[in-house]
Computed example of a mutant assay.
Amino acid sequence: MLNWSPGAIKGTVGVGGLGMLMWSISSLDKLHVHFWVAFVAALLPAIIFAFVTTDFLSERVVKPAQWFAIAWYFAVALVSLLIAAYRGFERSDAFFVIFVALGAWPCIVAIRALRGLSRHLPTPRAQFHQKSFENEIVFRANRMKAFLMLLVSMGFVAIGFFMRYDEPFLGWATICFFGLGIPVFSIMLIPGLSYLKLDRSGFEICSFWRKHMTQWADVVSFELISIQRTKMIGIHYRPGYARQKLGRAISSTLSRVEGGVPCQYKISAQEQLSTMEAWHARYSRSD
């Protein structure tokens, strides 16, 4: 079964749904189909993949639901393509082919998993050997998610552009809201904006050029956690650690850990955890 994070689902199947919607949006009036009906039909597979999961339901429910989402995605893609062919292809249609193909990728992954043919993809190799320690290691952020969310924002802005004639308020509201995401996600593509650095004294998290350093000696242990299917490295601080008391108390109430390190770098979550544990064991007791 497909068990991707909601962000990955929105950035792939959701983007594919937007592409299909853009193929057919100019013909909805002629077909006497309301925009919201087409909107829900295009995004239904993304909704199913994101919310019908084994985190909340049994496999007996999730498996047929995912099969339905896969079949629905390809059926709507075919209908949208036929609608675009009927009205006549335009140059912009070629751009949305990329969107639809991107959405087909997780559907194919889900088919392989549901049929028992999936194979574990090789874990990205670390840039070092875990048993060897350097002065510092820097993991750069994986910018693919930001790129996918940029495509989502651009897709919704394009939808709002076409909607503004029939529903001016809703169209312009869509353009303004999702238009704000375009500069944000564009900035996130800048190299060096976000990273995780490990050195002999501790680990440093940088996000939007804001840096936060934590000493190895202040940490008791790490663990891999999942919050709404988004993986993070949970932090348990030593007794007596005095910084960020309020934030740690809130975090502990919500997720059983006092802090977290995002898993958004060019390394798997499990390998990131193993690496941080190795460095913690090596340097938390050093002078």
Rank of each mutant, 00 (worst) to 15 (best):
L254F: 02
I225A: 03
E90I: 14
R119Y: 06
H236A: 10
L150D: 00
I137N: 05
S207Y: 09
A242Y: 06
E134Q: 14
Q130P: 09
L21S: 01
L121S: 12
I108F: 11
R200S: 06
V261R: 03
Y237F: 08
G171W: 06
F169T: 13
R243L: 13
F68W: 07
R256G: 11
R140Y: 12
M149L: 14
A249T: 10
A85R: 07
A242G: 03
R60G: 15
G19M: 01
I70N: 02
F133Q: 05
P6C: 04
Y165E: 15
Q272P: 05
W209M: 11
A104V: 02
M163L: 14
E223T: 13
E59Q: 15
S27Y: 07
G171V: 04
V138A: 08
C107H: 01
Q127V: 15
A217M: 07
F96A: 00
V61T: 14
Y283T: 04
E223Q: 09
A42R: 04
V109Y: 12
P64T: 12
R125L: 15
L193R: 13
L180Q: 09
V13I: 14
F39M: 07
V33A: 01
L273R: 04
L148P: 05
C206T: 13
W216E: 04
I225C: 02
L196T: 04
V40M: 11
T214H: 03
P45D: 05
F208C: 03
Y165I: 11
S58A: 08
L273F: 03
A71E: 09
D199Y: 00
P183R: 05
A242K: 14
Q127N: 15
G240F: 07
F99C: 02
S80I: 00
E271R: 13
R140A: 13
A217L: 03
R285S: 12
R200T: 06
F49G: 01
K266E: 15
K245L: 07
L57W: 10
V219P: 00
M1R: 13
Q130G: 13
D55K: 13
G181R: 02
E136V: 02
R243V: 12
V33N: 00
N135H: 12
K211D: 06
R243M: 09
T275N: 09
A77C: 11
V79N: 02
W105K: 11
Q272E: 11
W216N: 02
D199G: 07
D218I: 05
Y237C: 01
S92D: 14
G179Q: 00
G88R: 09
Y165H: 11
A46P: 04
C206Y: 04
T54H: 11
V37L: 12
S284Q: 08
C107A: 02
A8W: 03
G181W: 06
